[in-house]
Amino acid sequence: MTQEVNIPLTDLRRSQPRFSGFEAGHRACLGCGEALAARLVTESAGPDVMYANATGCLEVFTTAWPDSAWRVPWMHSLFANAAAIGAGMEAAMKAQGKSTRVIAMGGDGGTFDIGFQALSGMLERGHNVLYVCFDNEAYMNTGIQRSSSTPHAAATTTSPAGRESMGKRHMKKDIVSIVAAHHIPYAATASVAYPSDIHKKVRRALAIDGPTFLHIHTPCPLGWGHDGALTIEIARLAVQTGLFPVIELERGGVAGAMPIRKLRPVTDYLGLQSRFRHLFADSSRAKEELEHLQALADHNIELYGLRGEEKIDALDSEGADTVRRGGMRWA
């Protein structure tokens, strides 16, 4: 069936019943989790916000001059300084007596690695900045190199699997705990598979006076080796297996966790991605690594109490992102 619309699409686009801070025509890959997360964040934050964006995919695919996908005041400076730029913006707003909020954002490289010091400084100084990390677990913009966020056993171009290697040897850095250890008022993780949860957490963070942190898990079809149509499915499986716990921390203490309704084995998640393909080889090492990853997931489940009580959580529509006729998820 071909669609017929009475009003031109450009007019319709202009009159969407949500805040459009992030526009179409950006050059992200098909099914990009980061593009989606960025759109959701701007949408949730509203118009009175300025953004500091670290170098990375998001910055590159949104602002190929003279085009920009942003409809919010936005600035990219460098790879390592998004948190410091955000701090400067916030100081300026304070000095000018303005209420415009500041969101700094970066990928996992710009947050876990090169921008880590600036992030720590911003948090310690108590700037009224929400820092959002879009975590796709490797340096994707430069060609899928491992970062300190790359999960254990994932193959990247600098942690390839081979006769002597099962992918990345080290563990994924527990950034949210490290951030929370700054005793900031609010730090949380979220997944692009749960947009209502992102929406809620962005708003919660922006309502707080002080530094806040949101870590969003965003699959990268190119780097993880999956079809773009599977981005949400894979993000959801990361949560449902326990490999990516969705939690909230206040002043350093765990204040909430999204329960897993139906626990899934890690192989359901790993098997969909070519970065973990070597784990399905018929070898004892591969089997051991699978067990290792399952153990890591089990550890998270135990640590954060993620095992959902089926009865109680059955109606937890807020966290589970279930839908209602007529789009009531956003109510």
Partner: peptide, 20 residues
């Protein structure tokens, strides 16, 4: 803003000017 490095010192100043 007493920052944690000169890298951030320059960055904070940059962000502040960019914000007016």
């Amino acid at each position: 803003v007493s920052v944690e490095s000169e890298f951030s010192a320059a960055s904070v100043a940059l962000g502040a000017v960019a914000a007016g």
